[in-house]
Every structure is written in C-alpha cells, then in structure tokens.
Design a protein around this nucleic acid. Structure first.
Ligand code: ATP
Length: 781
DNA sequence: CTACATGTAATTTTT
DNA sequence: TTACATGTAG
C-alpha cells in the first residue's frame, strides 16, 4: 500500500490545494500509516517538553477511562457508554490529541450526526488546538462529507461535479411522475410507500436488479420497475437522492483500487459519533476506508438508537466487534450531566428493554429535584401549564436564560399548541426542525430556479417552476414537452429551448417556453456581479418576485419577504466565504442548503427551545419538559407497531429524559382533540416504568402500577409489554367512528397490531379499518 | 387553462 | 380541523 502522489494528483484536488499549505509536515506523514504516525508522535514526545505539557492540558478534563480512549491512537477503538458519560467530549479531545501529536488535520475524518455538531467540534478544536487546524479537519455528517468527495470524483461515476441532490419532495414528485407514466394510479400504489420501499432497499444495499430478482408479489414487481426507472431518471437529471450519496460513495471506493487507496491513505484516522445510528451503507464505507489502517474510533450508545426506521442498525456495534476483533473496548461509567434522580429514572426505564447492553452509570451529583409529572385536562391546558412552569422557574431565578429550557415532544404537530401558548404568554421560543425555512413553497421555487442555473438537466426543478409564476403553461403543454424531451432524450430545459420544433405546442406557448429557457441560459452565464445581486436580478426576471408583490395579500407579502431573506442568506454566505478568502459559489451554497439538518438552523436569540425527541439527541439542557406522555403518542402506536418499535419508543423516551441536567418535567393531557372530536386518553405506559419515589405526580393513580403488579414486575425482569389498547373487538359490536359514524363490525382479519376490522356503517358503506389506528369508540358489544 | 368548489382522508420520527 | 386532490365551470 504505497502512496502514489503522481497518480492521486489528477484524482484528488485536495492534494493540489494543499500544496500551498505546509508541504514539509505533509510529506513526512504521507509515507505510511501507523508507522509514521508513531514515529511522529514519539518524536514530538521526546523532543519537546512544552508539547508534552500541552497534551496534559488536553487530558485534564477527562477521567481515567476517557483518557484511555483518547490516548489510544492506533488501532480500532469502540466506546460504548450511556448517556452523558462524555462520549462526544472524548471524541473531540481525541481529535485534538491527534493534531497535537502532529497528525495533519486534513487526514482526520470525523462523522457527526448533524452539521451543527461538526461546527461545534471545530469550535472546540479551535480552542484546544488552533483555528487553522480546526478548519482543516474533515468534519461533517456522512451525507455532507460524501457529497463533497463525490463532487470531486463525480466524473468517475458518470455524474457532473455540479450534480443536484434531490430532497424528499423531489424524489416523491419524481416517483409520482413515474407512476403516472406507468399508468399506475396512486390509489393502488401510493408514491409515499414506493419511496420508502426504495429508500429502505438502498439502505440495505439492495440495488434495483437485486430488488427485482427477489420480488415475490405483483406489487413488488411494480415497485421494482419504478425503482429501476427512478434510478435511471435520477441519472439523466444528473441528480442523487440522499441514499445515493451513500451508495455512490461505496461505488466510488469500489470502482477503482486507486481511489480506494487514495482515501484510505488520506483519512488516516476515522471517527464516528452516534455510531448506534449508522446504517448498513454507512458502515460499509467505514469498513472500506478503515480496513487497512484500522484506525477507526466509534462512540455510541445502543440505548440511544432511535433511527431504525431510517435503516440504522444497532447490529453495527456487534459487526464492528467482529470486523475489528483487535479493537479496544472502552466503557465510560460516570455521568456528568444529570442528577441522581434523573439518572435513576432513565436507568429504571431502560431496564425494560431486555436486549439493551447492560451499563453501569453513576453520577457524583447526589439527589436532585424530583421529576414532576403533571396532568392536564387537554392539550391546550397542558401547553399553558408548561409555559407557566417555565415562567415560574424564570421568576424564581432557576432559569438563567430562556434557552436553558427545552420542550420535547414526539411529533412535530404537537408544537402547534405549545407555540400558541408561548405566543400568548409573550415568552420567546424557537422551534427547531419542523417545517424549516428551506422547505417553504416559495423558497423551494426560488431554489429550483437557482438549481437550473447549476444543473440544466434538473427536470424536477424545471417542472417545479415551469408555471410558477403562472405563465399559461398547463398540463397539456407540459405533457407535449415531456414527450418530446423523452423522445429526443434531452432534459426538459433543453426541450423548452427548442420549443419551436415541437409542433404539438401552440405558437404563443412555444414563445413562452423559449423565452423562459433563454432567461435561464442568460442567467447561467458568468457575471462579475456579486452573487446575491446577480441572483436577485435573476429572480426578478423570472417574475417570481413581482408575482408576490403584485398580489398584496398578507400571505403573498410573507412569501416575498421569505425570498428576500433567502437572498440575504446568500449574501451572508458569500460574505463569510470571502472572509475566509474563498470564492463563494452558487453550487456550494445549494449543496449546503440541501444537506442542512434540522438541528442546523442557527440563531443566537435567547429563546425556549421546542423540538422533537429525535432532534434533541446529543443535546443537553438544565430544564427539560417532555410533553404528551400519552399512550399511543409516546409510545407512538400505529397499526403496524411491533414490539421492536415499542422498544425504540422506549429508547426515545430514554434519550429525552437524559437530556435534562437538573430538572425534568413530564406532562400528559387527559383528553386530546383529534379532528375537532375530543377523546379521552390514557397516560403513557412508560410512566409506570419510572420508580414512583422519584416522581412528584399530580395523579399517580392514573398510571402507577398497582401493588400486585409492582411485585410481579420485580420478579420477572422483562414483563410482557401490554400493548396499551384496551379495546378488544368482536364481530357484531357496534362502534362509532368520528367521520364514518355508527357501524357494526362484520368481520375481523389478522391479529395483534395488524388487526383489520370490516365495518358496515349505517350510512351505507363498508370500510376496512386498522383496529390499532382508527379512532374507534365501542358503543355496545 | 385557470380558478374555484367539493369531497376526502389524515397525523411519526429526518439525512 | 385542515390540507390536499380531484372534478367542474367559466
Ligand atoms: N471528565 C469530565 N469532567 C467533567 N465534565 C464532563 C466530563 N466528561 C464529560 N463531561 C460533561 O458531561 C456532559 C455530557 O458529555 P457528552 O455530551 O460528551 O456526553 P455523551 O456521552 O456524548 O452524551 P449523549 O450520549 O447523551 O449525547 C457535557 O456537558 C460534558 O461537558
């Protein structure tokens, strides 16, 4: 495995850029892997007393186990440890330690879960080492790092370096289009389910041909066809979806031995945070990159694995142990985040998951405030109660700043009521994630116009804007254009430019199309104008801006403002780039935007934070409120819920609890209004899994297990989870459904969570309802 | 081709 | 309750 600088030069622009940096130290380390690393580090240790002190300084904030993890430089290291035990701190310090040991920062790879976490890593490194080194480390999410690497090597895979990244919406509308072309009505095969099947397949490394080969049902065969067409369409549009970023990275590395060696050598040290939530494809890349030098450092907690629905595999932990048998396993046992009370509650909860790796966790913070469990009449009440409690804490001086408090919930929809309550109380709040700025319609439209400048083959973008603002181009015109484009195998934009050749389209519309194409082509030409200005001008030309200003409704004005904000954002980006002496480019901006994670949206205003439990992973707050502890919501129970899902819900709750440093409050409403119909709820069964003596509950009798149950729970380590659905259905039962009205059960199909009910409604129709999901009320047996 | 009206079904979590 | 999709009238 020798280094070939000459050959790599053409493949990897990083090497060329680096030439202006510190060539000397670079060359020394380039020769080999661990041998040279050790040589360098030992040389530094012996030659410089000052440096040794620096290392001590780095290690001073760590306990013995943490030090071991940090200072094990060579070979694989796996850190498996509970919440708040300092895993992220260990990872950060270790990167700093490597740099202090003379490892060039650009040879260190660190995969984080969000871009924000990567930024924080760099900020820490800037303090621990120096800002210049911090900036050179390869830190980011799997997706964003892979996107960068893929751009550099795009041609090798048959893409252009400016390939577009399709987000969920783009994929979905593409799939919709393909279904239509195949004459499959969305009712028979929902675009959403096709997308999720394809995505799941990709996460499992199942390619279209593999998938087609293993189809069993006609439905799967249809999906296989769509999957195939979908990949072809993506390629033609010079686009990748999120999953492709991972798959194509694998392709790239397996494509040529040379490229593989290049990156195996470049990334001499590989780090993965939140390792429990990596999927098969991600692990595959880790293995490809790390199998030679074996310097792979992974930290994680199986009890915090909450993304299995996205293909994450806890099994990757065990596979790591198998594939890197010589690894050093480090366990961290001291929790530095939470009080004893909070930690005890979390530990008690998680023991209900029999499959979790057992972990000891202790904290030096004795005692702590009991966990408040508050009950409210309904969700509005609940939100008001939470806000009042936050206000009370603030007044009592127990909340230094608003942002020391976070409200967590299971689904985004829950934020609405909370938002209203905060607004009423006039307390600053901020929603993390949810419908982000970049997902708004007008922003996506504007971005679609921009995408076309960078990638003229981007058909999804073109279809998005072809009649936005309205230009009188409707279904018929679009259909003709599409047929012609398909026939001539050119992108839609190119077809539009040649619209005069399409006789099926009326003259006036041809002119509109060519005009639009010319406008885009002109804007795509290089200008000397500053980026944001040029874009502003372009968006004005498209008519998008005037479309909104002309309407003068409040909504339209809002949209106009949002686009203005987008332009301001671009200007800000450009300024930041120039500050770093880098040229801003639209390409880079668009890539950044498409790879934003929900945690990334920054703002320094002091506000109470509202986010989903998923979004809270890795964060910590002095005060945490978890809202909506209602059976069916947390744990979320759907028709398809399995026991494994239930365990994941429990882990999700575990993640939530362990975000709290000092105070934890859990709330539930006794009634929930769904579609305007009020329904009684049961408190989450998870509440009964928390030791009662740690709680300060309004109505413990609502959820606490009865004495006899408590005894039996104590005896059997893994109680069979009750599935929290008290209603048992029988044929002949009379039931009430909020939208269908009264009906009689005429048949029952399947069992457990898959129970389907055949119900004949008094209104005449017969429906098949999912017993676990449908909001059914039993009237009589 | 667009705009409006009516009916329908629906609520996970996100890179 | 709302959001979206489909159908119909202009
Ligand atoms: N040795 C230590 N001494 C003091 N504080 C520490 C130490 N190690 C970690 N901490 C602090 O403990 C808190 C939790 O650390 P960190 O976020 O790294 O834990 P984690 O294991 O990554 O947590 P999680 O898995 O819950 O995300 C942080 O505030 C961190 O600064």
């Amino acid at each position: 495995m020798l280094w070939h600088p000459a050959r790599t030069k053409t493949l990897c622009p990083i090497q060329r850029c680096r030439a202006c940096g510190e060539a000397a130290s670079f060359q020394v380390t380039l020769q080999g892997r661990y041998l040279c690393t050790r040589k360098i580090s030992s040389a530094l240790f012996t030659s410089s007393v000052v440096r040794v002190q620096t290392f001590e300084h780095l290690l001073s904030g760590l306990n013995e186990q943490q030090r071991q993890a940090v200072t094990t430089l060579d070979g694989p290291v796996l850190v498996i440890a509970g919440a708040g035990s300092g895993k992220t701190r260990v990872l950060t310090t270790r990167v700093a330690y490597l740099i202090a040991n003379g490892i060039p920062p650009e040879r260190i790879l660190a995969m984080t879960f969000t871009n924000k976490a990567a930024d924080e890593l760099r900020q820490r490194l800037a303090v621990l080492c120096d800002p210049w080194s911090a900036r050179r480390v390869w830190a980011g999410t799997f997706h964003s790092i892979f996107a960068r690497l893929l751009r550099r090597n795009a041609e090798l895979l048959g893409y252009s370096p400016n390939f577009t990244i399709y987000d969920d919406d783009d994929s979905l509308s593409l799939i919709r289009r393909l279904l239509k072309e195949q004459n499959i009505p969305p009712k028979e095969l929902s675009p959403n389910s096709v997308r999720s099947v394809i995505s799941r397949a990709k996460n499992e490394l199942v390619y279209p041909d593999d998938y087609a080969a293993q189809t069993q049902t006609p439905r799967q065969q249809r999906i296989a066809t769509i999957y195939h067409l979908y990949q072809r369409a993506l390629r033609r549009a010079d686009a990748m979806d999120f999953d492709d970023l991972l798959l194509n990275m694998i392709d790239l590395l397996e494509h040529s031995e040379e490229v593989l060696q290049l990156y195996q050598n470049l990334f001499a040290y590989i780090h993965v945070d939140e390792y429990q939530d990596t999927n098969k494809a991600q692990y595959h890349v880790i293995k490809l990159l790390g199998s030679e030098h074996r310097n792979v450092f992974a930290v994680g907690d199986d009890a915090q694995s909450i993304y299995s629905w996205r293909g994450a595999r806890i099994e990757n932990i065990f596979e790591f142990q198998r594939d890197f048998p010589e690894h050093r396993l480090v366990r961290l046992e001291q929790n530095y985040r939470s009080t004893q009370v909070i930690l005890d509650a979390a530990n008690a909860l998680i023991t209900n998951n029999p499959e979790q790796i057992p972990k000891q966790l202790w904290t030096a913070v004795r005692g702590g405030e009991p966990i408040r469990v508050a009950s409210y009449w309904d969700e509005t009440d609940e939100a008001t109660g939470i806000v009042r409690e936050i206000e009370r804490l603030r007044q009592a001086g127990l909340l230094q700043q608003w942002s020391d408090a976070a409200i967590l919930y299971r689904i985004n929809a829950q934020s609405q009521v909370l938002e209203d309550a905060f607004r009423r109380a006039d307390i600053p709040y901020r929603i993390i994630g949810g419908i982000s700025f970049y997902k708004r319609k007008e922003i996506k439209d504007a971005l679609a116009y921009l995408r076309l400048l960078v990638n003229p083959s981007d058909d999804e973008a073109f279809l998005r804007i072809i009649n936005e603002p309205p230009r009188g181009l409707g279904q018929a015109t679009i259909e003709h254009l599409r047929l012609w484009a398909a026939h001539h195998e050119v992108p839609l934009l190119a077809a539009a430019a040649r619209a005069t050749e399409i006789s099926a389209i009326a003259r006036p519309k041809q002119a509109v199309l060519t005009g639009l194409a010319r406008l885009i082509a002109t804007a795509a030409e290089k200008t000397t104008a500053p980026l944001a200005e040029a874009i502003h001008h372009y968006l004005e030309q498209t008519g998008l801006l005037s479309y909104y200003t002309a309407q003068a409704t409040e909504e339209a004005l809002d949209r106009y403002e949002n686009i203005a904000r987008l332009i301001a954002d671009i200007a800000e980006y450009a300024a930041a780039q120039e500050l770093n002496q880098q040229t801003p480019s639209l390409e880079e901006y668009l890539q950044r935007v498409s790879l934003l994670t929900s945690a990334d949206e920054t703002s320094d205003s002091d506000a109470v934070l509202l986010m989903t439990l998923h979004a809270a992973k890795g964060l910590e707050f002095p005060v945490v409120v978890i809202a909506g502890l209602v059976e069916g919501l947390l744990p979320l129970i759907r028709a398809t819920t399995t026991d494994r899902d239930r365990q994941e819900e429990r882990r999700l709750f575990y993640v939530g609890i362990t975000r709290a440093k000092e105070r934890l409050m859990l709330t539930y409403p006794r009634n929930r209004s769904t579609f305007g119909l009020v329904q009684g709820t049961l408190p989450s069964s998870f509440l009964a899994e928390l030791p009662l003596e740690l709680l300060d509950a309004d109505r413990p009798e609502d959820f606490a297990p009865r004495r006899s149950e408590q005894l039996s729970r104590g005896l059997s380590p893994s109680p069979a989870p009750s599935n929290g659905r008290p209603a048992r259905y029988r044929t002949g039962m009379r039931i009430l459904h909020p939208s269908f009205g009264e009906g009689i059960i005429t048949g029952i199909e399947g069992h457990g969570d898959n129970t389907k009910l055949h119900v004949r409604f008094s209104t005449g129709g017969t429906k098949i309802l999912m017993a676990g999901y449908a909001p059914i009320q039993v009237l009589s047996t």
